[in-house]
Amino acid sequence: MGTESAVRPRQRARHLGPERRRPQVLDTALQIAADDGIAAVTIAAIADRMKVTRPVVYACFADRVELIEALLRREEDLMLAGVLDALPRRRVEADEAVFVEGFRALLHTTSARPDGWRLLYGNPDPAVASSFGRARELAVERCTRRLRPTLRAWGTVDAERKLAALVELWVSAGEGAVRTMLTDPGDWTPDTLGEFVGAAVYRALRNA
Rank of each mutant, 00 (worst) to 15 (best):
R145K: 15
L182I: 12
A153Q: 03
V157C: 09
D184K: 14
E141Q: 15
D158S: 14
A153T: 07
G194S: 07
G82A: 10
R91N: 14
R206F: 05
D115P: 04
R148N: 02
M50E: 05
Y58S: 02
P55E: 01
E175D: 14
D35G: 05
P55N: 01
V41C: 11
A164F: 10
T150A: 08
R89V: 15
D95I: 15
V41Q: 09
A86G: 11
R14N: 06
V197C: 04
W117K: 08
R20D: 09
D191F: 03
A33N: 01
A39G: 11
V157D: 14
T189A: 06
P114G: 06
L166T: 02
D115F: 08
L72K: 11
E4Y: 00
C143D: 10
N207H: 14
T156R: 09
D63I: 14
G198W: 13
V178N: 00
D187P: 15
S111H: 04
V197Q: 06
A159F: 09
L84Y: 05
A59T: 00
L30K: 02
V57L: 06
R49G: 04
R148M: 10
G155D: 07
E93T: 10
A129C: 03
R161D: 11
R134F: 12
L119Q: 04
E160F: 12
F132N: 07
W188T: 03
L205F: 01
A199Q: 15
E96K: 13
R21P: 00
E101S: 06
R22L: 06
L182G: 12
E175G: 05
I68L: 14
D95C: 10
A127T: 06
A70G: 11
G17D: 09
V57W: 05
S130C: 02
A33F: 01
T192A: 08
K162R: 15
K162E: 02
A164P: 09
R152N: 06
E66G: 07
T144Y: 05
A33M: 03
E168W: 15
